[in-house]
Protein backbone atom coordinates (compact mmCIF):
# COMPACT_ATOMS: atom_id res chain seq x y z
CA UNK A 1 0.00 0.00 0.00
CA UNK A 2 1.08 3.56 -0.67
CA UNK A 3 1.26 4.47 3.01
CA UNK A 4 3.26 6.88 5.13
CA UNK A 5 5.66 4.03 5.96
CA UNK A 6 7.15 4.12 2.45
CA UNK A 7 9.57 6.91 3.22
CA UNK A 8 12.47 6.55 0.78
CA UNK A 9 13.25 9.88 -0.91
CA UNK A 10 10.84 12.08 1.04
CA UNK A 11 11.97 15.59 1.93
CA UNK A 12 11.38 17.80 4.94
CA UNK A 13 12.08 15.54 7.92
CA UNK A 14 15.19 17.43 8.97
CA UNK A 15 18.35 16.20 10.65
CA UNK A 16 18.85 12.62 11.82
CA UNK A 17 20.03 13.51 15.35
CA UNK A 18 21.46 10.28 16.77
CA UNK A 19 21.29 10.09 20.56
CA UNK A 20 24.59 9.49 22.40
CA UNK A 21 24.63 6.40 24.67
CA UNK A 22 21.08 5.59 23.69
CA UNK A 23 19.35 3.05 25.95
CA UNK A 24 17.69 0.00 24.36
CA UNK A 25 14.30 1.19 25.65
CA UNK A 26 13.41 4.76 26.64
CA UNK A 27 10.51 4.01 28.97
CA UNK A 28 8.86 1.05 30.56
CA UNK A 29 5.86 1.18 28.19
CA UNK A 30 8.31 0.55 25.31
CA UNK A 31 9.65 -2.59 27.04
CA UNK A 32 6.13 -3.89 27.57
CA UNK A 33 5.02 -3.00 24.01
CA UNK A 34 8.03 -4.80 22.57
CA UNK A 35 7.57 -7.90 24.71
CA UNK A 36 3.82 -8.39 24.25
CA UNK A 37 4.26 -7.92 20.49
CA UNK A 38 6.97 -10.62 20.32
CA UNK A 39 5.09 -12.94 22.65
CA UNK A 40 1.91 -12.66 20.56
CA UNK A 41 3.96 -13.13 17.38
CA UNK A 42 5.23 -16.41 18.83
CA UNK A 43 1.64 -17.44 19.56
CA UNK A 44 1.36 -17.89 15.79
CA UNK A 45 -2.00 -16.41 14.85
CA UNK A 46 -0.28 -14.07 12.39
CA UNK A 47 3.08 -13.70 10.67
CA UNK A 48 5.55 -10.83 10.37
CA UNK A 49 4.15 -9.53 7.07
CA UNK A 50 0.68 -9.40 8.62
CA UNK A 51 2.21 -7.41 11.50
CA UNK A 52 3.88 -5.02 9.07
CA UNK A 53 0.64 -4.57 7.12
CA UNK A 54 -1.22 -3.82 10.36
CA UNK A 55 1.31 -1.10 11.25
CA UNK A 56 1.17 0.34 7.72
CA UNK A 57 -2.57 0.78 8.01
CA UNK A 58 -2.12 3.46 10.64
CA UNK A 59 -3.60 6.72 9.33
CA UNK A 60 -0.71 8.48 7.53
CA UNK A 61 -0.63 11.69 9.58
CA UNK A 62 -0.75 9.67 12.78
CA UNK A 63 2.01 7.33 11.56
CA UNK A 64 4.34 10.27 11.01
CA UNK A 65 3.44 11.89 14.32
CA UNK A 66 4.08 8.80 16.45
CA UNK A 67 7.10 6.72 17.43
CA UNK A 68 8.17 3.22 16.49
CA UNK A 69 6.64 1.34 19.39
CA UNK A 70 3.41 3.31 18.97
CA UNK A 71 3.27 1.83 15.45
CA UNK A 72 3.81 -1.59 16.98
CA UNK A 73 1.01 -1.15 19.51
CA UNK A 74 -1.37 0.13 16.85
CA UNK A 75 -0.56 -2.95 14.73
CA UNK A 76 -0.84 -5.37 17.64
CA UNK A 77 -4.23 -4.03 18.68
CA UNK A 78 -5.53 -4.23 15.10
CA UNK A 79 -4.43 -7.87 14.79
CA UNK A 80 -5.83 -8.84 18.20
CA UNK A 81 -9.22 -7.39 17.23
CA UNK A 82 -9.18 -8.79 13.67
CA UNK A 83 -8.29 -12.25 14.96
CA UNK A 84 -11.04 -12.10 17.58
CA UNK A 85 -8.65 -12.42 20.53
CA UNK A 86 -9.75 -9.12 22.10
CA UNK A 87 -12.56 -6.69 21.34
CA UNK A 88 -12.20 -2.93 20.97
CA UNK A 89 -14.80 -2.49 23.72
CA UNK A 90 -12.92 -4.57 26.28
CA UNK A 91 -9.66 -2.75 25.49
CA UNK A 92 -11.39 0.63 26.01
CA UNK A 93 -13.00 -0.57 29.21
CA UNK A 94 -9.69 -1.85 30.59
CA UNK A 95 -7.99 1.46 29.72
CA UNK A 96 -10.68 3.37 31.62
CA UNK A 97 -10.38 1.05 34.60
CA UNK A 98 -6.59 1.41 34.77
CA UNK A 99 -6.87 5.21 34.39
CA UNK A 100 -9.43 5.37 37.21
CA UNK A 101 -7.29 3.17 39.47
CA UNK A 102 -4.26 5.33 38.73
CA UNK A 103 -6.15 8.54 39.53
CA UNK A 104 -7.48 7.04 42.77
CA UNK A 105 -3.95 6.00 43.69
CA UNK A 106 -2.61 9.49 42.96
CA UNK A 107 -5.25 11.19 45.14
CA UNK A 108 -4.81 8.98 48.19
Amino acid sequence: MNGAHDLGGMHGFGAISPEPDEPVFHADWERRAFAITLAMGAYGRWNLDMSRYARERMEPAEYLRTSYYEHWIHGLQLLLIEQGLLSAAEIEARMQRIAAETDAGAES
Binding site: Y43, I73, L80
Partner: peptide
Protein backbone atom coordinates in the same frame (compact mmCIF):
# COMPACT_ATOMS: atom_id res chain seq x y z
CA UNK B 1 4.00 8.85 23.50
CA UNK B 2 0.43 9.95 23.50
CA UNK B 3 -0.64 9.49 27.16
CA UNK B 4 -3.27 7.17 25.76
CA UNK B 5 -0.56 4.91 24.37
CA UNK B 6 0.91 4.16 27.78
CA UNK B 7 -2.56 3.32 29.04
CA UNK B 8 -3.24 1.16 25.99
CA UNK B 9 -0.06 -0.86 26.47
CA UNK B 10 -0.99 -1.50 30.10
CA UNK B 11 -4.52 -2.48 29.09
CA UNK B 12 -3.37 -4.87 26.37
CA UNK B 13 -0.80 -6.53 28.63
CA UNK B 14 -3.30 -6.90 31.46
CA UNK B 15 -5.96 -8.43 29.17
CA UNK B 16 -3.51 -10.79 27.43
CA UNK B 17 -2.12 -12.03 30.75
CA UNK B 18 -5.64 -12.44 32.15
CA UNK B 19 -6.69 -14.54 29.14
CA UNK B 20 -3.58 -16.68 29.40
CA UNK B 21 -2.28 -15.59 25.98
CA UNK B 22 1.01 -14.27 27.31
Amino acid sequence: PLPETVLRVKALESLLVEKGLV
